[in-house]
Design a protein around this nucleic acid. Structure first.
Lengths: 245, 245
DNA sequence: CGAGAATTTGAAACCCATCAATGACGGTGG
DNA sequence: CCACCGTCATTGATGGGTTTCAAATTCTCG
């Protein structure tokens, strides 16, 4: 299973593409991290980048009083820590037991100088992250609880896609609290909304960590995809005719 | 006046540093854009990048029903559209009349090949954006209305800083609705919270678009800065002891 | 099988949104 | 110069979606 996503909302960069970045990790040893183990803290000096071999990480920022915002989840195949400043922007913690490979950033700079395409790849990665982050801003700032959950499910399904089609059966290794902190809700609201979607038949919950999307189209509509891809007419005429002059 | 910020929450990359990216715009003509004029729409093919010479832009995503999330504001000195995909991720619209210079992306690729440092600069820019975006996620997902407004004010002040110190008097060219769509609130709530801060003496409002920060320290505390810089003890012990293993 | 954790479910409260009306500008034209 | 009018900001009253608090139930795993 080779599913990849840094931020859940991120576009997949064709998992089978032979990433030159990924080749950096070729000879590296695989380390392991226990469930709930910390890979690094927000603010730590960013010495390494990592490739997730298996398992799932949560990335988060936290306020002094404990309020937490999960900025994304990491899955196998994903690369972490590549484009950031000299310090990590968030804490990385294992949702499940994780196997990963480590690569020193000092050597990255050398590699970047050698391989010209690598630089573009890194930039593309950062742009994908940015795209996901902005979509998340729309979600956190303007979407309802149902829309957030629907979007979350649809996005996960899209990235676990097996051969073009989004997966119908997805598993969610993270807790309800994790999902809540990712979507700007509470654990209880996540649970309630999932329950509602289940009652309405849009999803099934074989177990609390396995979801079946029975009506993907309906969920996609609920998710309220933004942007240029929506083929609806009259998209821009709503809030008071903001036409170019 | 040489204030620069792409996303309001962004760290300033030393305004006086002679950016090699900025030199690209050297001989370019200055175009103008009327107030509320559209520079480009979300989803448009990203042919150009822009340097803002004067004025203010808002960048936003919109849902089919008109709900809007402003992902950031752009001010003079800032460069726009540099690191993105082949299509713009958001709509760019003038808050005030704007003067700007345009540079074709096709030529950017050539310039990137020539100047090695440029590539790093572009990446650094993307990382700054990403950092701001993640801070915004924490704000949108977990902060109260007062905290959001306080953070907004403090952040603006920090970027209009004149000689190290954050400015005490800031002007907000954008409307209350713009601020609301940036902070995930309503116009009315923005207005009410500003009123409250004014009554409490933390700020003054000479006009509705000019704010004086009377008690910056207090505002900073309200803003609830996240992360590693807070010198508080007991930061990580709150929500159930998430220590490494 | 048992104990603690995670999830679900219920009831009440609250923050912010919504709806509505008034007030303050700012630009325009008489 | 000032009256006018549309837009934006402010302020008030009400309502609702989500949170909070609490308890029951299910799940996990030693």
């Amino acid at each position: 299973m080779m599913t990849t996503l840094t931020q859940l909302a991120r576009k997949l960069p064709a998992p089978q593409e032979n990433s030159s970045l990924r080749t950096l990790f070729g000879g590296r040893l695989t380390e392991t991290l226990d469930s709930n183990g910390i890979l690094f803290w927000e603010g730590d000096v960013a010495n390494d980048l990592f490739e997730i071999a298996s398992g799932c990480l949560r990335l988060y920022k936290m306020m002094p009083d404990g309020r937490r915002a999960i900025t994304g989840f990491m899955f196998p195949g994903e690369i972490l820590g590549v484009a950031f400043k000299d310090r990590y922007l968030f804490t990385a913690e294992a949702v499940t037991p994780v196997r990963l490979r480590r690569f020193p950033r000092t050597q990255l700079h050398a590699s970047l100088a050698r391989a010209p395409g690598l630089s573009r790849e890194v930039l593309a990665m950062a742009c994908d992250e940015l795209s996901a982050a902005q979509e998340q801003m729309l979600l956190l700032g303007r979407k309802t609880a149902v829309e957030r959950i629907a979007y979350f499910l649809v996005t996960v399904a899209r990235h676990i896609e097996a051969g073009g089609k989004p997966a119908r059966a997805i598993d969610l290794p993270m807790s309800r609290t994790d999902i809540a902190d990712f979507l700007g809700l509470t654990m209880e609201t996540v649970s309630r909304v999932l329950g509602k979607l289940k009652v309405e038949g849009l999803i099934s919950l074989p177990t609390s960590h396995h979801v079946t999307l029975n009506q993907l189209g309906q969920l996609q509509r609920l998710a309220g995809e933004s942007g240029p891809l929506t083929p609806d007419a009259g998209e821009r005429t709503v809030r008071g005719a903001v036409w170019p002059n």
